[in-house]
Simulated assay, not measured.
Amino acid sequence: MKFRLEVDMDDATSAEESARELGRILRYWGGNLHHYALRPGDGSAVYDSGYREVGRWSVVSAEAS
């Protein structure tokens, strides 16, 4: 299986802000990892600190890549 994370950072005004937002997203997702079975088909929207949807994570089978 493969884990995919896509985050649209177009709204960030600087590289520093982009790094801060991405770090927050990764910490939040990593802290909630135990809530997911992580099987192909699992996935969810990803939100920034303003609670705007900025991407998605998903688990896909290796064949689907």
Rank of each mutant, 00 (worst) to 15 (best):
L26F: 05
F3E: 12
S18H: 12
V7K: 04
Y28T: 11
E63V: 06
G23M: 04
V7G: 09
A12G: 04
W57V: 00
V60S: 04
V7C: 10
G31Q: 07
R4F: 12
L26H: 05
G50W: 09
V54R: 03
Y47V: 03
G30S: 07
L26R: 04
S58R: 04
S65G: 11
S44F: 08
Y36S: 10
G41Y: 01
D42Y: 06
G50F: 08
S18E: 15
V54W: 03
V59W: 10
R27I: 10
G43P: 10
S49G: 09
E16Y: 12
G55R: 09
S44R: 07
M1N: 08
P40A: 01
R52L: 05
R39S: 10
S14R: 12
H34W: 13
G41T: 05
N32S: 06
D42I: 00
D11W: 13
L5G: 06
W29C: 01
R52H: 09
S44L: 00
R24S: 13
D42M: 03
R39P: 02
S58C: 03
D42S: 11
L26T: 08
G31L: 00
T13A: 14
R56Y: 11
G50P: 02
R27N: 15
R20F: 06
G55M: 10
E21Q: 11
R24D: 14
M1T: 15
V60Y: 00
N32C: 04
A62V: 13
E17F: 10
G55K: 02
S18L: 15
S65P: 06
V7H: 03
A12K: 11
S49K: 05
S18M: 13
V54G: 01
W57S: 01
V54N: 10
A19N: 07
G43L: 05
